[in-house]
Design a protein around this nucleic acid. Structure first.
Length: 555
RNA sequence: GCCUCCGUAGCUCAGUCGGAUAGAGCACCCGCCUCCUAAGCGGGUUGUCGCGCGUUCGAUUCGCGCCGGGGGCACCA
């Protein structure tokens, strides 16, 4: 019996008590989802619920009386062995061993689909993240989003949503021109223009460009730096794609800002906004009246000189996403873009959408890094930046992804390079992966001994040891963790859960011998425990998959 | 000034539909491998959950006000 099934059974018991006149309540007062939690103290049973405390007041009676009414009915439910009333009115529920044990079988049978839920079935999500300029390597801040954004997408998919990962290429504007001029300057061996790009990668790109097309230096006037700009753009974008590919983050859509303009999407967007009546002209510029919807001030779309603002692109881009059928558009932005939240939401509202539904802006605090006890400054222009590749080179893809995903994004993340560089074992990713490798080893051992546990007639009611039931309980949590993580867009909850699960396995393994001893016969308990191992391994693998982290067979 | 995030053990941090004795890792001390991976497990020590009110059966959690810290306020990209 899963926690969800138990919650449904409890709800049914409450509704029955009302129908039979024992509880003076309107059925509508009963919450749709009953809270079922695993008690910290194992003596409090497998699961506990606080419904009685919630319903006592509206029912005009005391919690323990309500608890008693529910308990009586719950005790008759198949699979429930015992129901206790404790403390102020908690219901402590113990499942019978067979019912709890069968969870292991259902997980193994479900395989890779275990943990997948249908909460967002039929909904289309767009998750936009990173969206860097193609003028340099991805830095650490981008890297955080590369890991977290992809994990959010994976968790949403696990919750049943159809998800597009989207990267918006800022390939338009003066930054691109400065990039081209900087490349040209370095190719000619002179200093880049003021505000231009610095750093070793600029030199390398310049050399690559000249090597591939020496004739580029023969161009004159603007044509030359424009040619450098285009060549550099192509190379740098490809570099970002390669790096992200290696990082196990794969985008479905790479959307060019230029194409937004060339395709007419900007005009289409303006037309939509004009229909909705929120555009106006003043001081020679064209504005969007975002202040009607919680923005501090109105925003300019077209400047007095006729140039489109960056905001115009943002606006058109949002409308283009909507026209592509996405119900929910999630933006992941750095804290330095915090001021954009209200105006983006206002764009949604100005377009006639519901900003509480169709758009969602997640703000992530920036990543800092310390080395040798001092903060490492990240500066794209300065050139002494830490890149995604640097981090991966130091700690590997799995550790990099995991350490970035493991924390909620609304708190600043400080990565201690010395700690990550040193092969110390305090990185939790190893702890989780080790559990998976350890189980894999046990299952290999079973195969070596010729134990065909899958087709054996397993009696899973034998899994009654404290560490066994605790592990079963943990395994059963994955679907609920997916529900919470997807709803809150917080994949770090999956990571924390996996650490608990790994801990539960290690504790089990330490006390419960799985394979028969060298000189012993195969006992039924060995087979039961192999099922438990297989279920734990599957759960770990599925959870790690949601983080884009590998589940190694050996370590 | 306005907005926003944060303040939990010596350190780094978990902990949202309000729940039972507030957790983990690191650090420190002590135990556990003749047989399934010791990258593991067990035990010991550590707290005015920033402060004060309020909401209620119950608040680390929700509301308000302070104190302390990070970030943000463009016809920039």
């Amino acid at each position: 019996m899963t926690p969800d099934q138990l919650a449904a059974a409890i709800r049914h018991a409450v509704v029955t008590a009302i129908a039979e006149g024992d509880l003076a309540l309107e059925p509508s007062m009963v919450p749709d989802e009953i809270t079922v939690e695993r008690p910290r103290n194992p003596e409090h049973g497998d699961y506990a619920t606080n419904v009685a405390l919630q319903l006592a007041k509206p029912a005009g009676t005391n919690p323990r009386a309500v608890a008693e009414l529910v308990a009586v009915r719950l005790r008759d439910v198949a699979g429930i062995e015992d129901v206790d009333i404790a403390g102020p009115g908690f219901l402590n529920i113990t499942l019978d061993a067979a019912t709890l044990g069968e969870l292991a079988r259902s997980v193994v049978v479900a395989g890779e689909t275990y943990g997948r839920i249908d909460r967002y079935a039929g909904q289309k999500y767009d998750v936009e993240f990173i969206s860097a300029n193609p003028t340099g390597p991805l830095h650490l801040g981008h890297t955080r989003w590369a890991a977290v954004g992809d994990a959010i997408a994976r968790v949403l998919e696990a919750a049943g949503a159809e998800v597009a990962r989207e990267f918006y290429i800022n390939d338009r504007g003066v930054q691109m021109d400065k990039f081209g001029m900087s490349l040209e300057a370095r190719a000619l061996g002179v200093e880049p223009p003021e505000g231009g790009y610095q750093g070793g990668y600029v030199d390398e790109l310049a050399q690559q460009i000249v090597a591939a097309d020496p004739a580029i230096l023969d161009l004159v006037g603007d044509a030359r730096w424009e040619a450098f700009r285009e060549a550099g753009y192509a190379l740098q974008l490809q570099q970002q794609k390669d790096v992200l590919d290696h990082f196990n983050t794969h985008f479905d859509v790479w959307y060019s800002e230029r194409s937004l303009h060339s395709s007419g999407a900007v005009e289409r967007g303006f037309e939509k906004l004009r229909e909705q009546g929120h555009m106006f002209e003043a001081d020679g510029a064209v504005w969007l009246r975002t202040s009607d919807f919680d923005d501090d001030k109105d925003r300019v779309l077209v400047k007095a000189d006729g140039e489109l603002t960056y905001f115009a692109s943002d606006t058109a881009y949002y409308l283009d996403k909507r026209s592509r059928g996405f119900d929910v558009n999630i933006y992941l932005l750095g804290a330095d873009h915090h001021g954009y939240v209200n105006r983006l939401r206002a764009v949604s509202a100005c377009a006639g959408d519901d900003p509480d539904v169709n758009i969602e802006v997640l703000i992530g605090q920036l990543v800092k890094m310390v080395k040798g006890g001092e903060e490492v400054r990240l500066s794209k222009r300065a050139g002494n930046m830490i890149t995604l590749e640097d981090l991966v080179d130091e700690v590997g893809v799995d550790a990099a992804r995991y350490s970035l995903i493991r924390y909620p994004v609304d708190s600043p993340l400080v990565l201690d390079l010395d700690l990550l560089v040193s092969r110390s074992n305090d990185n939790p990713v190893f702890y989780v992966q080790y559990a998976h490798a350890r189980i894999s080893s046990v299952l290999r051992g079973a195969a070596d001994l010729g134990i065909d546990w899958r087709s054996a007639d397993a009696d899973l009611s034998l899994l009654t040891h404290e560490r066994e039931t605790a592990l079963l309980g943990l395994i059963g949590e994955l679907p609920r963790v997916v529900a919470t993580a997807s709803e809150l867009r917080e994949p770090h909850r999956v990571a924390r859960y996996l650490e608990e699960l790994a801990n539960g396995y290690h504790k089990f393994y330490d006390v419960c011998r799985v394979l028969p001893m060298a000189d012993a016969e195969l006992e039924p308990i060995n087979v039961s425990r192999l099922w438990l191992c297989a279920a734990a391994r599957q759960t770990l693998a599925n959870g790690l998959g949601m983080l884009g982290v590998t589940a190694p067979e050996r370590m």
